[in-house]
Design a protein around this nucleic acid. Structure first.
Lengths: 187, 187
DNA sequence: CCTTAGATGTACTGATCGGTATTTACAATT
DNA sequence: AATTGTAAATACCGATCAGTACATCTAAGG
């Protein structure tokens, strides 16, 4: 009983925080929307911030697992993996509930560099960077870390421009630019 | 008297909102930090959101004026202008008070697409995009809008990665990638 | 049926929230 | 000095904030 309720809470809180923002979501709203009593919430988490941290952990795990799996099941070579990364984020952008990156939001709302929330958000990005540095190395890039940074810059830029509704095909633009940069590094 | 006090308020509120976040900053904190009475604040602005809108307008004007001037005084050709854009944002990142892009923060905290704050934040990005599409055209790019989107993706990505402390030379990385993309388009 | 563990429901706390209302103070102009 | 306009100071409003306390309910296992 206990583990499932905790997971249910984190899962529901994730959706609520994502749609409303962290500070703009009060615990009473979580109670109402999640249908879980405040007593239970505080039984599992000492503070609202602890709940947010758990939410970020779940989101990190879900997102990275989905992304890596999505990429690996549609691309055969490491080079192709770097390219279809942008198809995957394009799928993400097309989701009806898409409202940008939860980790960017977390770091925007919790800006102190020693805040565990900020720290965890940044860690998520580092893990993505390291993953794609590995992919770039396997693809035979002469400077895999540099290429990974290129890809990350394009992905993050695309997330921002898509979330703000400024570019209509942010992922497509980023993919095109990425292909150019990949070709320049691999040839 | 009146215009100056209003401007003083907007200027101070800009700093306070930028350091603390919009929702995380209450009007009582603005009163304390700005040293302006709540009566005066509400005399000039009907609501907190109206104050935020004025803050975004001021920030937009200051930032774009600074950026364009900075670029034009250090670059002679439109092509050079696209490249020194990244030197300018590097200077910005190096400021002690740098905490990312206020417009990204605004759109993250006010996510409804019909919210005037979200709308204004997105408009800021559009104006940058159009400006650099113009620069790219003058530089002789075959697809100036596309190149401008490339530059914007890199700039926004760099802002995110710098604000989150993930990349140590986000602007430098973005510049290197931008040069590659510019050369590919102009040659 | 009884016990235990998990969960709900509800009221409460002191503080803050955005915004309102009223009085007083201050500065500039005539 | 009087007048006018601006601004500060302060108390207030109803609501929400994160978190606490306590009683009650529910479900599962022995």
């Amino acid at each position: 009983m206990r583990p499932n309720k905790r997971e249910e809470l984190v899962h529901k809180a994730l959706g609520i925080f994502y749609q409303n923002g962290f500070h703009a979501t009060g615990m009473d709203m979580i109670v109402r929307e999640a249908g879980i009593s405040k007593t239970s919430i505080y039984k599992h988490f000492r503070t609202k911030d602890d709940l947010i941290l758990a939410v970020l952990r779940l989101r990190d795990e879900n997102f990275r697992n989905w992304l890596y799996r999505r990429i690996e099941e549609t691309a055969q070579t490491p080079k192709q993996q770097m390219i279809v990364l942008f198809d995957a984020v394009d799928e993400w952008f097309a989701l009806p509930e898409f409202k940008g990156c939860m980790f960017i939001k977390a770091s925007a709302e919790f800006q102190e560099p020693d805040n565990p929330i900020y720290v965890q958000a940044a860690e998520h990005k580092r893990m993505l960077y390291e993953h794609f540095a590995d992919v770039a190395q396997k693809a035979g890039a002469t400077k895999p870390k540099e290429l990974s940074r290129d890809l990350m810059l394009l992905v993050e830029g695309a997330i921002v421009m898509a979330a703000m509704g400024v570019f209509s095909d942010a992922a497509g633009d980023a993919k095109r630019a990425a292909i150019s940069l990949i070709e320049a590094q691999l040839n």
